[in-house]
Every structure is written in C-alpha cells, then in structure tokens.
C-alpha cells in the first residue's frame, strides 16, 4: 500500500465513542497535511448518513462529497484500538471496531484505498494481527505487502 505514512499510525489507543474515533483518525490526516480541518466535520457527517463500519472489526471513516474540496493529497490514517470501540447506533446491536482507517482520496482514489483495505481485512487473521500489533512499524510491515 503506497499511501502509508508511519506518522499517520497510532497504536494502543483507548477511545470511548465512534465520534471520537473518527475525529482522531481525521485529526491525524489534518496534522500531517493531507486534509484541511473541515474534512473532519465531513467525516462525522458521512457517518451520520451512512455508517462507516465495514464489518470484520474495522471501520473506514471518510468524508462526504462536500468534504472532498478539503483534501490536499491522498492518504490513510490508522488507529488501533485493542479493546475496541462500538460503532453501532443501537447499544443492543454491537459493532466492535479494533482498527480504524481514516481515508482521504483524491479523484475517486478512495475506492482504490477501500479495496486494498477490504482485501487485506477480509481475512480475519489479518485483522487480528493488526489489532495485536505493538508498533506503527509492525502495522506498516503487515500492510506493505498489500498491492
């Protein structure tokens, strides 16, 4: 995966709510110059119309169409939450997420990013490895083989 940047990966995070998880993923993109700050709001807005929960314990927050103007370059942020954060709207219907991928894709590149992440995470063992990883380097090593 080309778009990976070690600075955009945080491991061992404890996050209480899905909003906080999305904000954290967005903030990393902002801090490292991939997007402008309003992109975070559009990520929150997107999760309101459509859950960004993907299944297999991962969530892939991304911006709305309106938010696209704030993207400066394509990038992925990764937040590992080993104890999980619930992405469901309904407490009875738990959607536990252990790895959050924040994505910003220029020119429809978001599909490319989504497809790489989905491919890798379709094997639950890979998700487990991501969730168990102890450092950003370890995560990059796991993901670098994804084409």
């Amino acid at each position: 995966m080309d778009a990976l940047d070690k600075d955009l990966i945080l491991v061992n995070q404890e996050i209480k709510t899905k909003e906080d998880a999305i904000k954290a993923a967005g903030q990393l993109l902002v801090d490292h110059g991939y997007v402008e700050a309003p992109y975070i709001d559009s990520m929150i807005a997107r999760n309101k119309d459509v859950s960004v929960y993907m299944g297999n314990f991962i969530a892939i927050p991304h911006g709305t169409d309106d938010g696209k103007q704030y993207i400066k370059k394509t990038g992925i942020s990764i937040i590992q939450v080993p104890w999980g954060v619930d992405f469901s709207d309904d407490p009875a219907d738990e959607k536990l997420v252990t790895v959050v991928f924040g994505i910003a894709g220029l020119n429809g590149e978001h599909l490319q990013l989504l497809s790489q992440i989905a491919l890798f995470c379709s094997d639950i063992n890979n998700v487990e490895k991501l969730a168990d990883a102890q450092s950003a380097d370890e995560i990059i090593n796991l993901l670098k083989e994804v084409e």
Partner: peptide, 24 residues
C-alpha cells in the same frame, strides 16, 4: 463483507464521474 469487496472491484471500473460518488 465479502460481497462488499466485489462491489468495490465493480465500481472501480467506472469513470471518475461515477467512482468519486460511490459511498459505503
């Protein structure tokens, strides 16, 4: 999950006007 991956592969073939607006 599995079929969502196929959906992504399908939409990836479309021109930008469609691709850009494909949401989850």
């Amino acid at each position: 999950f599995k079929d969502q991956r196929l959906a992504i592969e399908l939409f990836k073939q479309f021109p930008e006007a469609v691709r850009t607006h494909v949401n989850m």
